[in-house]
Simulated assay, not measured.
Amino acid sequence: MGTNYHTAYAAGVTGFTAALMGAPLSELDRAVTYHKTAFVGCDGTVSYDNTTGVLTWSGTLHIYFTRADGTAIHNSIASGNITLADGEYCYVTLSETNDAVLTMAKASLGAGSTSTFKAYNILPMGYRNASDNNFYPEELAGVFAMMLAGSAYVEKATFDANTILKADTDNTPAALTVAEQRIVGRKTGGNIDALTGAEALTILNGMQAGQQSITCSDNVTIDWSAGSTAYMTFDRASVAVTLNNPVNGQVYRFLVAQDGTGGRVLSWSTTVKWRGGSPPTLSAAANAIDILTLVYINGTWYGDAALNFA
């Protein structure tokens, strides 16, 4: 047999009484009873932000445990949040009073020093790890597990600097990697996707394709994002025109109609390079119609006119 390193029992010398042990037996019994079957649930969701250290529970937390006398006890914590620093844990101090409302508290783990969570009624919920700032649940582990099991999620490891979160149907999040020279958008009848430039341009052109009516006034601003064709009927002698929100490479048209008086004119607050070097002279006859074609290329407007439509 090997060497016996235990002190031999000696009558009247060796003792196993509660007073000779490090913790009272009553407290050890309570600790075993409390923690053996402690259930924690949440009426809402539990989330953690590892950049701020904020742990949030959106609904009431419910705790069920067995008191030393065998009675099942319910405690609760109202919805709220707590901010954890590196190396801190959050906990509650259980109450033997049924339906007692508790407060979430926090303390330093203090490894190598006197434990702050050795008391029988301290129920640790989890701690913030100093090296990665993540939250590691203890009694909240079951709550986090149920949240993951009951809803779809995407692992952090699937994300990089070129990845976003998307879903093709409700509650089905998925990682979408966006390649260079792609635009995130959604085509008609399609899902969120990384669109090519041509696909995005098709969408933009479609948005620009509508027509819009311009109300005549002394100063008119045409917002081309509302439609690539605009029309206006004069009701005064002169109208100043400003062109807004063009897209490079897009063609726009502006139909102007004389009223029953005729002889109305346009001036241009926006600089336009006209064919022939000067703005066109509009048809002066009553009810005459002219169509001005405007092209926006590399930040410059170019214009031409088709006059006197019968």
Score class of each variant (00 low, 15 high):
residue 1 M to C: 06
residue 4 N to E: 14
residue 8 A to Q: 13
residue 12 G to A: 06
residue 12 G to Q: 06
residue 15 G to D: 05
residue 20 L to Q: 15
residue 21 M to C: 06
residue 23 A to K: 14
residue 32 V to G: 04
residue 32 V to Q: 12
residue 39 F to Y: 09
residue 42 C to G: 04
residue 46 V to C: 12
residue 63 I to F: 15
residue 66 T to R: 12
residue 67 R to A: 14
residue 72 A to I: 15
residue 83 T to G: 04
residue 86 D to S: 09
residue 88 E to C: 04
residue 90 C to H: 02
residue 102 L to K: 11
residue 104 M to W: 09
residue 106 K to L: 07
residue 110 G to R: 13
residue 111 A to W: 15
residue 115 S to C: 09
residue 115 S to Q: 12
residue 119 A to L: 10
residue 121 N to A: 15
residue 125 M to T: 04
residue 126 G to E: 10
residue 134 N to D: 00
residue 134 N to S: 06
residue 141 A to Q: 13
residue 142 G to Y: 03
residue 142 G to K: 01
residue 146 M to V: 12
residue 148 L to H: 08
residue 152 A to N: 13
residue 153 Y to S: 14
residue 154 V to F: 01
residue 156 K to D: 02
residue 156 K to R: 13
residue 162 N to M: 07
residue 163 T to I: 04
residue 163 T to Q: 07
residue 170 D to I: 15
residue 173 P to N: 13
residue 173 P to M: 12
residue 174 A to L: 08
residue 182 R to L: 02
residue 183 I to C: 01
residue 184 V to D: 00
residue 192 I to K: 13
residue 194 A to D: 02
residue 196 T to G: 11
residue 197 G to F: 08
residue 201 L to A: 06
residue 202 T to W: 01
residue 203 I to N: 02
residue 209 A to I: 04
residue 213 S to C: 03
residue 213 S to K: 10
residue 214 I to L: 05
residue 215 T to M: 11
residue 217 S to G: 14
residue 219 N to K: 15
residue 224 W to M: 01
residue 242 T to A: 13
residue 243 L to A: 03
residue 244 N to C: 03
residue 248 N to L: 03
residue 249 G to A: 12
residue 256 V to P: 00
residue 257 A to I: 09
residue 262 G to D: 03
residue 266 L to P: 00
residue 266 L to E: 03
residue 267 S to W: 14
residue 268 W to N: 06
residue 271 T to Q: 14
residue 271 T to I: 07
residue 275 R to C: 03
residue 276 G to M: 08
residue 279 P to T: 12
residue 283 S to T: 12
residue 290 D to V: 08
residue 292 L to S: 01
residue 299 G to Y: 11
residue 303 G to N: 04
residue 303 G to M: 08
